[in-house]
């Protein structure tokens, strides 16, 4: 008598990578065959750009910014704006997508100004800032002042990772990692060994070409990781370090003890939505904030007043580091 085994075909790793949103993306997925086409990914990413990218003059977000009253949204814009409202509320306004005029004034936008803004200019711009000046009814995003402009760069990449993840799931893929611009979503495990996926947290001050470029390595099999930091985009004006994370309340860049925050959440849009605001809270408040939230974890790199760099993590995040 012959015993027959029905052997499952082995899963293999497939990699896709390319350019989008002014950065790179990487997808690793495990399947028996290469079933994802690069053109499909690129077309999804182009679609998101056409909606959310400040770098595309024709994008929906730019049309909104140019409009006097608002515009009808698409699915992408609506989803991200709705989530932005939620996080605005949760963070007491520290995350605010209407910060765009300030970001641009400080030289971190698409257009580079000729000079740095003075206090009068900041006060004037602050009048156009505040998520309260936005409202979303049905599919229409309305602004109460024509000068209100939004910048979704703080949340769009995390959301993009979600969109890619959902696409992979829709193709029946269970084990994958989808990353764009350092924001990523993980599902399942490496195959065939079934190890958790490993993700390096970039070490500030280390160069990516250093032998050990990671501050820590995280192991996980579900959820999203995003990082916000002030260690790459900054310049110095006198004694002050001006970074790209602008406080919507004051109009100036956040000056806290945090160098970077890495957030774990169930999905990319949530993680990415919170990371900038946590940077703005400073270590103590950010730690308390995350500990209060279910389904949120965070890892912090910060400096003490004597200039020494330390790191720490919330309870839930710490389990990922083991």
């Amino acid at each position: 008598m012959q015993v027959s085994f029905i052997q499952k075909p082995a899963l293999k790793a497939f990699h896709l990578e390319g350019y989008a949103q002014g950065t790179t993306y990487h997808i690793t997925y495990y399947h028996t065959h290469a079933i994802i086409r690069q053109v499909a990914i690129d077309s999804i990413l182009n679609g998101i750009d056409s909606s959310l990218s400040l770098y595309k003059p024709y994008s929906l977000i730019n049309r909104f910014n140019r409009s006097t009253e608002g515009i009808a949204t698409d699915h992408y814009l609506k989803t991200v704006v709705a989530k932005s409202f939620e996080i605005y509320k949760e963070t007491g306004g520290l995350f605010d997508v209407t910060v765009q005029p300030l970001v641009e004034a400080w030289g971190f936008g698409v257009k580079h100004p000729d000079s740095l803004p003075d206090t009068a200019r900041i006060s004037a711009l602050l009048k156009c800032v505040g998520t309260g000046k936005l409202s979303l009814k049905n599919n229409y995003l309305h602004k109460s002042l024509p000068c209100v402009k939004i910048d979704l760069n703080g949340i769009a990449q995390g959301y993009t990772a979600d969109v890619l993840a959902n696409y992979l799931r829709s193709k029946g893929i269970q084990n994958f990692l989808a990353e764009i611009g350092g924001e990523l979503v993980v599902s399942g495990r490496r195959q065939p060994g079934s190890e958790k996926m490993s993700v390096g947290i970039e070490a500030p001050g280390n160069d990516p070409y250093e032998p050990a470029p990671y501050q820590r390595i995280v192991h996980l099999d579900h959820g999203a990781l995003t990082t916000s930091g002030n260690y790459r985009k900054f310049y110095e004006s006198g004694a002050k370090k001006i970074n790209h994370l602008i406080d919507p309340h004051t109009g100036y860049s956040f000056q806290t003890d945090l160098i970077s925050v890495t957030v774990w959440a169930k999905d990319g849009i949530t993680a990415d939505g919170y990371d900038n605001a946590l940077m703005g809270m400073g270590l103590k408040k950010a730690m308390e904030f995350v500990e209060r939230k279910k389904d949120l974890g965070a890892y912090f790199i910060y400096t003490t007043p004597d200039g020494v760099v330390h790191d720490t993590a919330t309870h839930s995040f710490y389990t990922l580091l083991q």
């Binding site: 990692l177 611009g181 350092g182 390096g200 970039e202 990516p208 995280v218 930091g229």
Partner: peptide, 11 residues
């Protein structure tokens, strides 16, 4: 060596 990297303004 890792499957992915998270970082601010990734190079």
């Amino acid at each position: 060596t890792v499957d992915g990297v998270t970082g601010a303004t990734k190079i």
